[in-house]
Design a protein around this nucleic acid. Structure first.
Lengths: 176, 176
DNA sequence: GCTGACATGTAAGCAGTTACATGATTAT
DNA sequence: ATAATCATGTAACTGCTTACATGTCAGC
């Protein structure tokens, strides 16, 4: 799965501008995908050159003009090909878990601070996903629901584990 | 957190060869970090050039010679600097969750297959983490325990969610 | 006049990956 | 012989990020 596949996938439903795409990345994909403007605009340009999408300039009032991109039949074909490829293994890169692994080179108060920060980050993520769930509840597809519920469940499990371990750490620290 | 920081971190404890480092990446960091030989060897070369590590060639019998790398005081300093930097937000890139989101462009049997495959992958990951837990139990540090338990808890939560949603999907499918 | 949301883009660089290339040694 | 494990490396490429650059329009 590349940025290109995701951009095509979003255009499958309706035409979007580069800016719109960035908004979707931030609102919906935050917990399992990321993409910057520096990736989006060059990708759109390349897709247009390849005949996978076409452009229409739309005048707006009250806002600057935008360039809307529509997927072509060629583009739909490419997206279907992506869906037929093997599912890639998920990639996680966690600085927090790495620091846990290297914990012996830090002191207990630092470890504790990192764990508390991670709990806060993840609790905020859970809040965010729950509010999305509430907002979309009506129109949501089964599969979108799966992606949301997995996010909520895994973050919740992480927070619970962290809170349990934090209590252990504090007990251990008080004894010494 | 870059590959460079992780390599230095591993050398904090004891000297290792490039090959040894790769083995650690595969055995211990699998679920939150990845690094190839193509990253490891150039990184070691650069670290040596920068005076952060030094090399010693070790003859082995029964095996090819290896180049062992030792961290220097300069190197320890750089690693401590990494530990003092802000914890980076974790990055997840999941092709599986993306396909869930784009589920409406696939059929139910494909979605079901993807979910079943993901359950299998994650169950294998859980088994793997549990066996590591058993193997290391005695010598494990508190922080290593945290990183293992988070892995086990989050994967378990994902598998449970997927199984629940899969049951829902099958019921829904049977009704239609 | 300035801030903030909306909007588009480029260029340089980075942190890797992928594919290739080589070779020792042991076990089958 | 030949596969498997151990071992080291390079070169080309890629898919992005970061920083920069520019501009519109609304509301305060």
């Amino acid at each position: 799965m590349k940025g290109r596949d995701v951009v095509l996938g979003l255009l499958m439903e309706k035409e979007l501008s580069g800016y719109d795409i960035k908004m979707v990345f931030e609102e919906i994909f935050t917990h399992f995908f990321d993409g910057s403007f520096g990736m989006i605009y060059p990708t759109l340009r390349q897709l247009e050159k390849d005949g996978k999408i076409r452009k229409e300039v739309v005048m707006q009032d009250g806002k600057p003009n935008k360039k809307m991109f529509f997927i072509t039949d060629e583009g739909r074909k490419e997206f279907q090909q992506y869906l037929q490829s093997d599912v890639e293994k998920e990639v996680l890169r966690s600085d927090f878990l790495m620091r846990m692994y290297f914990g012996k080179y830090s002191d207990v108060s630092t470890i504790q601070k990192w764990m508390e920060e991670e709990i806060k980050r993840k609790e905020a993520d859970i809040e965010d996903l729950l509010s999305k769930y509430e907002t979309w509840k009506k129109g949501i597809t089964f599969e979108e629901e799966v992606s949301l519920e997995i996010g909520i469940a895994t973050y919740t499990a992480e927070v619970e584990t962290l809170k349990r371990k934090l209590t252990q750490l504090k007990k251990k620290d008080a004894l010494e």
